[in-house]
Amino acid sequence: MELIADIMLVAGALGAGFYCFVLSRRLSKFTDLEKGVGGAVAVLSAQVDDLTRTLTSAQDSAGESSRSLEELTERAEDAARRLELLVASMHDLPNTPNPEDETVEPIFRRRSRS
């Protein structure tokens, strides 16, 4: 009976050893930096770094554009206020006829033949 138990124990140990060997080979392929998931993780990490730099650059550009737009808006509002004042001051001017609007009719005179 002890012989059968020892044979079963050795067979189990050999099976566990073979399983560990196969698992080790699969795991080494899985974590390979060129072909496996390790490579994919490395590529994704590099892409995340690139996207972070691009996003930072885009945020800086958007901030500059926003500041420029705010300055232009302020200038436009100032110009609009000045134009409103000029239009309001035009109402205070007296109405003068425009000399170009008056039509001058020609005067015809006859001369005598004497």
Rank of each mutant, 00 (worst) to 15 (best):
I107M: 10
D32W: 00
G12M: 02
C20R: 15
R67A: 13
R82F: 01
P99K: 05
L14K: 01
T103R: 09
Y19E: 12
I4R: 01
M8A: 14
L23S: 13
F21W: 10
S68Y: 06
L51A: 09
F18I: 09
D49P: 01
F30E: 04
V87K: 14
S45P: 05
E84K: 05
S65A: 13
L83K: 04
D49E: 10
A80M: 09
P94I: 05
Y19T: 12
A5D: 04
D6P: 03
F30I: 00
M8C: 14
V37A: 09
S45Y: 07
T73W: 10
L85F: 15
R26V: 02
A13P: 02
L33I: 07
A62T: 04
P97R: 07
E71T: 12
S89I: 02
D78T: 04
P94F: 03
A16V: 02
L44P: 02
T54I: 07
P99N: 10
S114W: 13
S45F: 07
G38M: 01
M8W: 04
L72W: 05
T54E: 15
V43I: 11
G63K: 11
G15E: 06
L85T: 12
R25Q: 10
I107C: 07
E70D: 08
V43N: 11
L9T: 07
A42D: 03
A40D: 06
L83P: 12
S57Y: 02
Q59G: 03
V37Y: 15
E2I: 01
A13V: 05
D32A: 01
P99H: 11
A58N: 10
A42L: 07
G38Y: 01
V104E: 10
M90W: 03
S24C: 06
E34K: 12
D49F: 09
D78G: 01
L55K: 12
A40F: 08
A62Q: 06
Q59M: 06
L3A: 04
V22Y: 12
R109E: 04
R109K: 09
S28N: 15
A11H: 06
T54H: 15
L85M: 11
